[in-house]
């Protein structure tokens, strides 16, 4: 397996053109970014609102139970239903992005909501007590304190979308999934395996990038069990490990 993989990767034909690695990689990242952005614009404000006001909590439960719907099924339904209504290349891209965004909503919503919920009620109370307006409470206290869980939601969503985007090649989407799906279809195992390696590496890398961003953005004061200044470095690591805590949203890698 290794030799055939190596020869696939060293074949210059696989590094150029529409079906070349750079282009597929770029497509994959672009789909992921678009889907996450669309989902974030909807889910994060909604999660903040539900967490802040405590209203409409059923939205979070609903989104969570929607995870029982198989991603593959969702992909097919949206594609069959929307595909004929859209013309040209967009016919494949738009339904896929919609599904990817839909899949990113539950982890983002649950992470944001859980983050705001987890804010120490005394800190929220103090924020009102010192004369912050509701918007200031949200911006200066609730959001910064929600960040650790919000980030774990974002990271779950990103992994979910990267994974599902490769499956979406089956409804003719581009991206790294093409190697997987085409490789399987053509019985070209090296190509499929190379696609698998690329997707896995991309997922790990993206997660690592978000872990780094999280470490920079989240206040060191929020590290779990953060007593003692010396423990700071180690503690922000554990924030990062906290990310996939089972009590908070866990994604289903599709």
């Amino acid at each position: 397996m290794i030799p055939s993989l190596v020869s696939w990767f060293t074949d210059p034909a696989n590094w150029s053109g529409e079906d070349g690695i750079p282009n597929r990689l770029l497509e994959h990242v672009a789909y992921t970014a678009e889907a996450i952005l669309v989902a974030a614009v909807v889910a994060i404000p909604l999660g903040l609102w539900v967490g802040h006001t405590g209203r409409a909590r059923w939205l979070v439960s609903l989104a969570n139970s929607a995870r029982a719907v198989p991603t593959l099924g969702l992909l097919f339904v949206v594609s069959l239903w929307l595909g004929p209504r859209i013309t040209g290349d967009l016919a494949f891209v738009v339904p896929s992005i919609i599904v990817l965004a839909l899949l990113a909503v539950p982890p983002l919503l649950a992470g944001t909501y859980a983050g705001v919920q987890a804010v120490d009620p005394a800190a929220r109370d103090a924020a009102k007590g010192v004369g912050m307006t509701p918007l200031q409470v949200l911006r200066q206290v609730e959001v910064p304190n929600a960040l650790p869980l919000l980030f774990s939601g974002v990271r779950s969503a990103v992994l979910q979308v990267v994974a599902t985007a490769s499956v979406a090649a089956v409804i003719s989407l581009g991206g790294l999934g093409r190697y997987l799906i085409d490789g399987i279809a053509l019985g070209d195992y090296p190509r499929a395996a190379a696609g698998a390696v690329l997707v896995a590496v991309l997922a790990v890398l993206l997660d690592g990038v978000f872990a780094l961003v999280q470490r920079r953005v989240v206040s060191p004061g929020l590290a779990p069990g953060g007593r003692g200044v010396s423990g700071r470095g180690k503690d922000s690591r554990s924030v990062e490990v906290e990310a996939d805590s089972p009590s908070t949203p866990v994604r289903a890698p599709a």
Binding site: A163, S166, G183, A193, G195, A200, A203, R237, A254
Partner: peptide, 25 residues
Amino acid sequence: YPALITTTGLLYTIPSLALFVLMPG
């Protein structure tokens, strides 16, 4: 603990279709 959590976290990161395809290898 950190070693185990990091390793398992990494495994969990790998997309399923990729893992299925890599398994025979």
